[in-house]
């Protein structure tokens, strides 16, 4: 059975003058998954999220969130009822107190859960009467997260959610994300903290220069990406390993390191044919996959 994607874009493009922030993005986010959206600064992650939420108009292409068109103002407004969003800079109103902020935001959502809000308020040790402008960055992040997590949205979009949180706060957040996903909430989040992503994400999207380079499940990536270290009595030319799936080759004396996104078996076979004296195949961590992907691009 094929489930309808929660987020789907087709050739979504956003240009600012001659500079393209997002180029022909074809994204598909499956329901009940935690999808991580990775990319360097300026890769187009935040622009993509803003297009999904109707904050920015696409230059071309189209997209849907929960089946509603992102470019239709009415559908987009309806969609926002079912989506919780925490922006990168954790925007809040400095002139409101913590309590006023919670009361204000909660009034817009029928899925607001006062019990969870109260629980998080205590856990995060947020002072209800304190003005938001006098909160520390970490506390502001916690309040922004509270506003999103105290609901039962169908989709939770988080842009750099752990930024500003201490290790305890990060741990708590990750546990919350996993629990929400288990509860049927689809989570789409961008992050630079790859170790965190690797802990919770089911699916990985890597964006670079506005282009989607990787869109696969974490398990698929772990299974297909390999680092192969080879030692030869007489080093062969690198072109011998330029086969499908090989992303990068590094040679140093008699040693050669091949980084393959797939087809590792073919690389090993070729190495044996070229009389390699040592062949070591190792799995690749997500950090390395990310770095290799954006470096290659």
């Amino acid at each position: 059975m094929t489930s309808t994607p929660v987020i789907q874009t087709r050739d979504l493009t956003k240009s600012y003058g001659s500079a393209a922030a997002v180029r022909g993005l074809n994204l598909s986010v499956e329901p009940n998954c935690i999808t991580a959206f990775l990319g360097q600064n300026g890769a187009g992650k935040s622009t993509t999220i803003k297009m999904l939420l109707g904050l920015v108009r696409p230059s071309s292409g189209e997209g849907t969130v929960l089946g509603m068109r992102i470019t239709d103002a009415e559908e987009n407004r309806e969609m926002r009822r079912k989506v919780a969003y925490v922006a990168e800079n954790k925007p809040l109103y400095g002139y409101m107190t913590v309590e006023q902020t919670i009361r204000f935001v909660s009034s817009f959502y029928t899925d607001w859960r006062a019990d969870i809000a109260s629980k998080l308020l205590n856990e995060y040790k947020l002072p209800p009467q304190r003005k938001v402008k006098s909160l520390s960055k970490g506390m502001r992040t916690k309040l922004a997260l509270l506003l999103a997590l105290a609901r039962r949205p169908e989709l939770l979009i988080l842009d750099e959610p752990s930024e500003g949180l201490d290790p305890v706060g990060i741990e708590h957040l990750l546990q919350m994300l996993v629990a929400l996903a288990a509860d049927g909430v689809t989570i789409f989040f961008s992050s630079h903290q790859i170790a965190e992503v690797e802990r919770v994400a089911d699916h990985i999207c890597i964006l670079d220069n506005g282009r989607l380079l990787v869109n696969a499940s974490l398990d698929e990536l772990r299974q297909s990406y390999r680092r192969i270290d080879l030692v030869f009595p007489v080093p062969p030319p690198e072109r011998e390993f330029q086969i499908v799936g090989v992303e990068r080759i590094e040679s140093k004396g008699h040693e050669m390191r091949v980084f393959a996104s797939k087809n590792a078996e073919a690389v090993v076979e070729r190495a044996h044919n070229l009389n390699a004296v040592s062949v070591e195949v190792a799995p690749v961590a997500l950090r390395e996959i990310f770095l290799e992907t954006v470096k290659e691009n």
Binding site: L53, R80, Y85, P91, G94, V105, F108
Partner: peptide, 18 residues
């Protein structure tokens, strides 16, 4: 004005029209 302070994302993510 909220765009300059960064708070516009919160306002515009609410389910209300501009």
């Amino acid at each position: 004005r909220e765009k300059a302070t960064g708070a516009s994302s919160l306002t515009l993510s609410l389910p209300v029209s501009r």
